[in-house]
Write a protein that binds this DNA or RNA. Structure first.
Lengths: 187, 187
DNA sequence: GACCATAGACAGACTTGTCAGTCTGTTATA
DNA sequence: TATAACAGACTGACAAGTCTGTCTATGGTC
């Protein structure tokens, strides 16, 4: 059992799920695109749902890693917080931008499907925590209550910018969200 | 051809699409739930896609009507703008709250499906216009540039509050979005 | 009141295709 | 030889949409 094949499956499935949706992507399409046999796919994953969780994991891992790398190149201070939106602007401009993979997936699963929902909620909570730690580093005069409060607000703005820029196929949501973030940091 | 049967189909399909998703709801389930024959359904709609557009229309019509009714009962001024979030808090507390039907549907369709996408974009643009007209009535010292700017910001906050309250199954996104709206109106 | 025509709706079979997952025998590589 | 992967058939279920014959309610005519 090789990690390479499994990773290849995850990457292929991720691209398909993200662009076309989870329910609209069948396992036959995944194996065809990945150029593998179905038995191979099912030797690595027990079910389509398990592939989905792996997809969510993969997207998040890549996202957090890329975001951190981008932010670490920005000047410390409020600019680094605002650079979250600069990062979003950058990925918005790539060809493969289809909005928020978590929201997309959440929309497709039934309300009582807990595995996928928990994965999504976990990722979002972790993002809020990441924003909070960014605030701690870059806005040292904030106390922990303020940090928690503002990290949630920035998270909401970021999420909105992602979803709405995809919906409208325009970047004004990113720009407006950034301005609101600025206002909050100045306040 | 009766409007009553068609409306009944739309309402049934709407409930199913909104809760379980468009792709996860089959036409067989709609006819079963609506207690009609399949031929009846296809005598009113040419395709499932057409039912989807009718669903989006229906949800939006109900939403705008309810929102306006709610807002008209609020005191004029900034409170009336902020009451958008009060309205959201109210529907969040109903049993049938499953987030934003437009975002949900957008997540399920393929990126090149234009009919549904255009309907969704149209609804969102209309919501921004509605918020702008609310600002005009209730914040008379705003000029048209400011009004346009702030309506977009409020729209983003509202959208985020809807999607994230559903995602997290908590109401803090609504409360935080309202606070940001307040900050923007005071600024 | 009886009859007829029409519109709307019904039940259910059908078509073609896809779905996720299972299984078997075969192949390639170290 | 063992492992990982392959090709492809299979299963039972479901998908959207088509079609046929039947039923019911209503309005009009005699």
């Amino acid at each position: 059992m090789t990690t390479t094949t499994k990773q290849h499956i995850i990457e292929t499935a991720s691209a398909l799920f993200y662009q076309n949706g989870y329910n609209s992507t069948g396992v036959n399409e995944i194996i065809s695109e990945a150029n593998i046999a179905k038995a191979t796919l099912y030797s690595h994953f027990r079910s389509k749902e398990e592939i989905c969780v792996a997809y969510l994991h993969h997207m998040n891992t890549t996202f957090i890693s890329d975001l951190k790398a981008y932010l670490s190149r920005q000047k410390q201070g409020p600019q680094r917080i605002l650079a979250i939106f600069g990062f979003l602007q950058k990925i918005y401009n790539t060809e493969g931008f289809f909005g928020c993979w978590c929201l997309k997936t959440l929309a497709e699963i039934s309300p009582d499907e807990q595995n996928i929902r928990q994965e999504i909620q976990g990722q979002k909570t972790a993002l809020i925590v990441l924003i909070a730690s960014l605030l701690k580093e870059n806005m040292p005069n904030y106390n922990s209550t303020i940090t928690k409060d503002i990290s949630r607000k920035i998270y909401l703005l970021y999420e909105s910018a992602v979803a709405e820029s995809y919906l409208h196929q325009k970047d004004w949501p990113i720009k407006e969200a950034k301005k609101m973030c600025q206002l909050i940091l100045e306040h």
